[in-house]
Amino acid sequence: MELGWRQTASKKIAKVPVKRIAEGFGKIFLSCCRYLILIGISYLMIYPVLTMLAQAFSNPMDLYNETMTWIPKNPTFMNFTNAVESYFDYFKHLKITLSAALISTGLSLIVCPLAAYGQARYRFKGNGLLFALVILTIIVPIQTAQIPLYLEYQEFDFFGLGTLIGKITGKPLVFNLLNTNWVYYVPAAFGVGLYSGLYIFLFRQFFKGMPKDLEDAGKVDGCTRLGIYLRIIAPNAKPVFVTVFLLSMINYWNDTVISGMFLNSTEAQPLMIYVDILSSSIVERSSVFGLYGVMGSQAEIMACLVMVVGPLMILFIICQKFFVESMDRSGIKG
């Protein structure tokens, strides 16, 4: 009897540490695996970016060097100054890109959540149809409407209002939006801008997941319907606002589809499409100078690319903590 008790007791004592040690090893092994995989994939992601930076800051002659590493041997700003001084009107195009991205994103952040809130919280006739339209704007490629939209923007009359005014006063209110940033602002202001459908969708899912008690409290306190949205819903949806802000900035910054269709004059082009066209002309121009020219063009293209994505990287670094943390709190249901 006593022996039996002792045996089980010793078994218990022996079992626990072994299990714990095994668990501990398992955990260490798993976290090692995690780090290995993450470091491997991070390498794939960092590699092109670091190479771009390294080539942009190095002397074209050093690009021949097989021992070239990620740290340029003779770091220079030569490629940047060459590009800006001779052919790359950086600041003009930066201004166009910045205003296009900032204003359109701002407009999207006003219109998209409003539409999403209406769809998420109010049961009205055509609610389902509106949601289907949101999905359709995501699916149908914008190239489909290229020519009709081109004609619409060429003689933009505020959806018929301008012509109506013209019939009354004899002077139609018509503007040509082509080759201006308005081809970004107008659709963004009406919730059909670049990826607006996706943002409406994201906002809608988030609002659907929010507890209704909050709004009931607002109603009891005598808030208007718009007041409830502005004072209760919007402040509580900050994480989604941050996420959409960053995504939208990135998408407008990187856009070449809309600018390719409606901004044909080089004077009016944002950075991204400008650099795309520029890069091929740099190669052509420099191939006259033989291999050195080609290397020089390589370094200069990289310098241009750094200038183009630089502001976006800086924005990301500033917002990064807010963005990464906000994801933890946004809890959008797919």
Partner: peptide, 21 residues
């Protein structure tokens, strides 16, 4: 109210999406 919240989107989707499509 539902329509009012969706008014800008509705205008946009009619004139800048459905009409061109």
């Amino acid at each position: 109210t539902g329509y009012l919240f969706n008014l800008p989107f509705l205008i946009g989707v009619i004139f800048l999406f459905i009409k061109p499509m």
